[in-house]
Amino acid sequence: MAAGGDHGSPDSYRSPLASRYASPEMCFVFSDRYKFRTWRQLWLWLAEAEQTLGLPITDEQIQEMKSNLENIDFKMAAEEEKRLRHDVMAHVHTFGHCCPKAAGIIHLGATSCYVGDNTDLIILRNALDLLLPKLARVISRLADFAKERASLPTLGFTHFQPAQLTTVGKRCCLWIQDLCMDLQNLKRVRDDLRFRGVKGTTGTQASFLQLFEGDDHKVEQLDKMVTEKAGFKRAFIITGQTYTRKVDIEVLSVLASLGASVHKICTDIRLLANLKEMEEPFEKQQIGSSAMPYKRNPMRSERCCSLARHLMTLVMDPLQTASVQWFERTLDDSANRRICLAEAFLTADTILNTLQNISEGLVVYPKVIERRIRQELPFMATENIIMAMVKAGGSRQDCHEKIRVLSQQAASVVKQEGGDNDLIERIQVDAYFSPIHSQLDHLLDPSSFTGRASQQVQRFLEEEVYPLLKPYESVMKVKAELCL
């Protein structure tokens, strides 16, 4: 049975990233139509530049190519590739079939990587351009969430054990800070992308030097003109047959890092959902379990974690691919890159769409948070109580021993009897502590235990987050809708 299948058929496997999760716009960027249309555009740009620099290419040939950029006979191309065992030459023939007058000058002087690699770089750039505003929107939604809850005390956790208090907004800023680093890295790697350009079979530009009869300047002009037509500021000066596969490492490393950030955020949300302090959106008709109707599973956060793990592992592909590119190139890269580049971007696209949807509907339960604080705060307040007693004339050592005994009794009630923490009640009825009984409410005010959390939130948002989001103001209103 021949390899390949009808990918629109229910009898043929289709990647869930495309069929179930990723956005239509990201799927289109990695589609065959987008790819092969870009090949034709690159052939047109090459012909236009070659004509401008004096090669015998007519206006009629150029116009014929322009008129057929979208006229792609995919069936013919597939048949040609089956016959020739070469995808680029299959599309040269297919393009030439609908451009008979231009057929002889299509791909003039070029090698397969002229269309293959340059198209990949265009796709990487455009895919990054799709991700950047999506990530900015996630940051914006979380920034709104953090600002609104900047002063809401909550129990902090280290080692997932109760620690000092923080605020809900401050905790959210930990998430935002990681995503801001990801946004900066995505922008950097996007701006650092260079075009492969017009380089020939081993990167020496020998074929173009021959076409222009040894004119170095025209060869350099050709490279520059096509690079500018493709919208790049610069091209690699040095290439082998391909652009260095280190570029793929750079791009997928940034995406993998984004995956790590999203995994951490969504894990926190899942843990908070278990504590009943916070939940992701839950639709009115949504079913959490087929057997347990009360369940409210954090399905979206779980999906993000599941896909983020996949995204983090994909960076190993370009690392290994770059390491086995012998001399000017081997074909070890080809099949692998067809999979890992598309999957990385479709996965990143999915987790950003999902995280935006989550961040637009996060639900906080202040009463649950308050109750958990009441359970733990008495123990945390013991040092403040000791200091207040010393100020009232008591002995630190005597007070410490009193607190120690009462704390152990209260802990026994919590752990052995399943009761509430009654340390404060014990202190309130103990005559030894009568000098500070009137101060206990103040000493137990949760806001006095959150330090500068709310001020940190305000400063972080104003100095770091809002300036970073400013270039994306025009796209901030787009909502994230999930079908599944």
Rank of each mutant, 00 (worst) to 15 (best):
Y243E: 06
K402H: 07
A348N: 04
L272V: 12
R372S: 05
D87A: 01
I287K: 03
Q177H: 15
H310L: 08
W45N: 13
K477V: 15
K276M: 05
K229S: 12
Y114V: 02
L307I: 15
V413H: 15
Y34Q: 08
A273Q: 08
A47G: 08
K147H: 13
L319I: 13
R372G: 04
A230L: 00
N118E: 02
T239Y: 02
C113S: 12
G104D: 09
V88G: 05
Q241F: 04
D117M: 03
Q184W: 09
K415Y: 03
S289F: 00
I369A: 14
E148N: 09
T330Y: 03
T313V: 10
L131I: 10
F433N: 03
K276F: 09
R194Y: 06
A335Q: 04
E50L: 07
M65D: 00
K276N: 04
W326V: 03
V115P: 07
Q164M: 13
E464L: 09
I265C: 12
S290E: 04
F345L: 12
D332R: 00
K284A: 07
H310V: 11
G156Q: 02
A103S: 09
H437S: 10
S112G: 04
T154G: 03
T58C: 13
Q397V: 05
L258I: 06
R426I: 06
S323M: 10
V198T: 14
K199P: 00
G200I: 00
I265D: 00
G203L: 01
V414Q: 02
C172L: 05
L131A: 14
Q177A: 11
D191L: 08
M26P: 05
G5S: 11
L130Q: 07
V429M: 15
L121W: 00
L124T: 14
S261V: 03
S289M: 04
Q210T: 14
K284Q: 14
L444Y: 05
Q375P: 03
D191E: 14
D117F: 02
C483T: 11
D59M: 10
L193T: 09
F460G: 05
R188E: 04
L311H: 01
Q61W: 06
R188F: 05
K82Q: 13
F74K: 15
D441A: 09
G394C: 13
L179S: 05
G96H: 00
A388W: 02
S207Y: 05
I139V: 12
T94G: 10
E463S: 08
L222A: 05
S140E: 14
M387F: 08
E277S: 05
C340E: 04
K415L: 06
G116R: 01
L341E: 13
N384C: 13
A388I: 06
E60S: 13
M76C: 14
G419P: 02
K75C: 09
